[in-house]
């Protein structure tokens, strides 16, 4: 399987590159490059989450910004309560990432289960529109709910902490994000190889046949959707710490679009697709954003080109046509 081994090589290059470039930046005294690499790692993690629903399960969610934003708000809200030393729902706040992450995953998971349970009653184009509409509902709620800043958002004055590291230092935070991304990728790989992953892919290809061999399509898809929301929520919590800020715009519809862009640019269904996609998107934003105020026009044209002429995304271009590896 030459394509398969070529994809492994691409994955290795991506993982190493994502580690070595910021390492070089650390040595060269370019802290912003480290920040960018951290951003790529976090967006890639959000993409890994979405890829479970979208790439493996064929569920095109245009509403994953909701879970991303919910994760970010969990980090922001817990940090604020820890900072002010006030309880939230009777429990203390926290500024420890290791406490915040499970809570962020839990709450985005619950939300994904609720929205998924309703949305999965339909499929195809319905599913796209419904997930978008529900995400927009969460967005409007965040804007008009004054307790945590409403549209102004919620600042995180000091980044939440990770044992043994100083997360205010760009390199330390990068290591955290990179580590979590690698765990997320490993989990995603395991999921693909598992019986659950096989069932999920079988449902994507033919739900009737899957049901005939004893798989419960609704249950399997809902579980996958919840897991997908949880990982994207975790990425949101990390993003809040990177920007030291949470705002409703993290759950607005363009963010959902960006997450889909990341997956497709990298290569739908590819394990490392989100990493490649996030690197392309962030690189594009930084390069063209500084050059022209019309950078969104060029981004749109590049995306159009990618859909029309480069169907497998970057990894597809390099490693060949085989999909969903």
């Amino acid at each position: 399987m030459p394509e398969k081994s070529r994809e492994y090589a691409v994955n290795a290059v991506l993982a190493l590159g994502l580690l070595l470039v910021p390492l070089w930046a650390l040595w060269a005294g370019e802290p912003f490059t480290i920040t960018l690499a951290t951003r790529i790692a976090i967006l890639a993690l959000a993409g890994v989450g979405l890829n479970i629903a979208l790439g493996l399960g064929g569920m095109v969610s245009f509403g994953h910004a909701a879970y991303f934003g919910i994760g970010a708000y969990v980090a922001g809200i817990l940090a604020q309560h820890a900072f002010l030393n006030t309880p939230v729902l009777g429990l203390p706040g926290s500024n420890q990432m290791l406490t915040i992450w499970p809570v962020a995953m839990l709450i985005s998971g619950v939300m994904a289960t609720a929205i998924g349970a309703l949305s999965l009653r339909t499929s195809g184009i319905f599913f796209i529109m419904i997930t978008l509409a529900f995400a927009q509902m969460v967005f409007y709620f965040a804007i008009s709910w004054p307790a945590y800043g409403g549209e102004d958002g919620l600042p995180i004055y000091v980044r939440n902490q990770f044992p043994g590291l100083n997360t205010m230092r760009p390199w330390d935070l990068f290591l955290v994000a990179f580590g979590v991304l690698m765990v997320g990728l490993a989990f995603s790989a395991l999921l693909r190889g598992s019986r659950f992953g096989a069932a999920l892919m079988a449902i994507r290809q033919n739900p009737e046949r899957a049901a005939a061999v004893g798989i419960n399509p609704y249950g399997v898809q809902l579980t996958a959707f919840a897991i997908s929301g949880m990982i994207t929520g975790l990425a949101g919590a990390l993003m809040a710490d990177l920007t030291r800020f949470t705002s409703p715009s993290m759950m607005a519809w363009p963010m959902s679009g960006e997450l889909i862009v990341i997956i497709i640019l990298g290569g739908t269904g590819r394990l490392f697709g989100p990493v490649a996609g996030a690197a392309i998107l962030v690189g594009f934003e930084v390069t063209f954003g500084g050059m022209t105020e019309h950078w969104k026009l060029w981004l749109g044209l590049v995306l159009l080109g990618a859909v029309l002429f480069a169907r497998g995304g970057l990894i597809g271009l390099i490693a060949g046509k085989e999909r969903h590896g």
């Binding site: 912003f32 490059t33 920040t35 920007t243 800020f245 705002s247 715009s249 954003g289 500084g290 950078w295």
Partner: peptide, 23 residues
């Protein structure tokens, strides 16, 4: 003077600020 578009998004503004300061 260095000018850049924040697209009215807070995260974008933070990233641009970091770049302008750090690099």
């Amino acid at each position: 003077l260095v000018v850049e578009d924040d697209a009215q998004r807070p995260e974008q503004a933070v990233q641009i600020a970091d770049r302008m300061i750090q690099s």
